[in-house]
Design a binder for these strands. Structure first.
Lengths: 252, 252
DNA sequence: TCATGTCACCGGACTAGACCACCGCCCCCA
DNA sequence: TGGGGGCGGTGGTCTAGTCCGGTGACATGA
């Protein structure tokens, strides 16, 4: 509470443009309304004792993140909060929270298995390598929503099986193992329910589900291979679309 | 063929950093293998008579596009071609091309209708306003893949109905009307086939389909509302996942 | 009253340097 | 022969300017 006007620490090893980006990011999150202007580049440069190029670097990063908006000849403004420009690597709990529903889950099994050749290929491990397998029935607002089968190489999460199934896997990975997922890929398709899943999900045995397979990575290391079956009558995905890349033309 | 070493035109109204970005982008597309280095920032600056900051601006843009990769202390390298970081706003034809299949299509109907209240809401037009409706059966490698129902406000595409159904709608919009789609949003869900669609798609009447609804925009103007039903046995979506945004924390 | 032109201020572009940390290689010394 | 240190090149950061074109408010004049 002493530093009521936090500034840039020129002695810090953190680059100034990142310090300023953080500072502005906090200003935006804390107080500024969407549409309201931030100080001009020249003002910020003077106020924090930086050159204008450095200020621009910080602002550019926030513009790239979609949090600010430049208007030529006018100023820089706090952007309207928009939908994520990309599907995020979030777990079920967070996904449901964003949809305004309450997530809960029932663990159906939690065990150490040995990777089949198919699983080994999906998880980038050796065939036969120990793998932690977690099968959960996922509820949203108390009603079955999905069945999720998660697989993790055991060498990345020693002791996990013994510790029992965590409430939020992603959070547990971060807190206990320091594993923060940084990117992933996911396939999406439609299918009819597997016979054994139907009663768990509370749908007919030929009910329709949205099947997703996810591979998640922390930097270059694959951490997770998960398949999920979501009840088609309760779940819908929403994705933003970016402009198509301009085809490469020789003589434009 | 005269300008064998195209350079930067300092008199052009196109900013130099964009000219250089284009130049480098073409170099990457034309010849350089993934993993091979591009000239150093200092070399490029000298070669094209630019300051290093300008060169960095061009390179930064390509890095943001995922086409280059910086390695500290070593250099800048052509990135491994990766999947699009985002689902692109491409039509069926382009989508199939990317999947290595040949697209064709049969027009089932192409007419002027008046917007129902539901359609009006989806298309951001007035209820009753004239709308062009195009229903097509889409084939990939000659086999039915999807049924697509596209709606466009007629005021944006006068004369389209009279001209007949174009081969590639998106290209036709760009060439004839100067309408270039810049962004969109799409919902995805699983469902069973509508009874009338099943025989067209060549699947059972209770067959499973992936249903997508797309709204496409050119800048701020909505241009298209399209619903599609894809055969679940032939179509799979693939999406990349970005790292979850750090939740906003007041006192980190 | 209303149109027009001026002007201050904004972001956009660009320069020509500076110093730093990092990386890989090569040479020299143990 | 093997290990370590030095060195040159690289990207990362940062400065202190300049000039340009777009914007909007305000003053001025018809």
């Amino acid at each position: 509470m002493s530093d009521e006007a936090p500034g840039i620490d020129p002695t810090s090893s953190v680059p100034k443009h990142l310090q300023l980006k953080d500072l502005l990011g906090r200003m935006i999150a804390d107080g500024l309304q969407p549409g309201s202007p931030i100080p001009s580049e020249r003002d910020l440069a003077e106020q924090y004792g930086l050159s204008r190029m450095t200020v621009r670097q910080a602002i550019n990063a926030l513009v790239a993140d979609g949090r600010l908006e430049r208007r030529l000849g006018r100023g820089t403004y706090v952007a309207q909060p928009k939908m994520d420009v990309q599907i995020r690597l979030v777990g079920f709990t967070e996904d449901m929270r964003r949809r305004g529903m309450t997530a809960s889950s029932r663990t159906l099994s939690f065990e150490r298995i040995h990777a089949s050749s198919a699983l080994a290929a999906h998880l980038e491990v050796e065939s036969g390598e120990p793998v932690v397998r977690l099968v959960r029935l996922r509820y949203a607002d108390g009603i079955p929503m999905a069945i999720e089968r998660t697989h993790l190489p055991e060498r990345l999460v020693p002791g996990l099986v013994e510790a029992g199934a965590p409430e939020s896997l992603y959070r547990y990975l971060a807190e206990e193992y320091g594993i923060v997922l940084t990117w992933g890929e996911q396939s999406i398709e439609a299918a009819t329910t597997a016979a054994e899943d139907a009663p768990l999900l509370g749908i007919r045995s030929d009910g329709v589900v949205l099947v997703m397979a996810r591979r998640s990575f922390a930097e270059d290391v694959q951490v997770e291979y998960a398949t999920s079956a979501y009840r088609a009558d309760r779940y819908q995905l929403w994705v933003p679309l970016a402009q198509a890349a301009r085809p490469i033309v020789r003589n434009p």
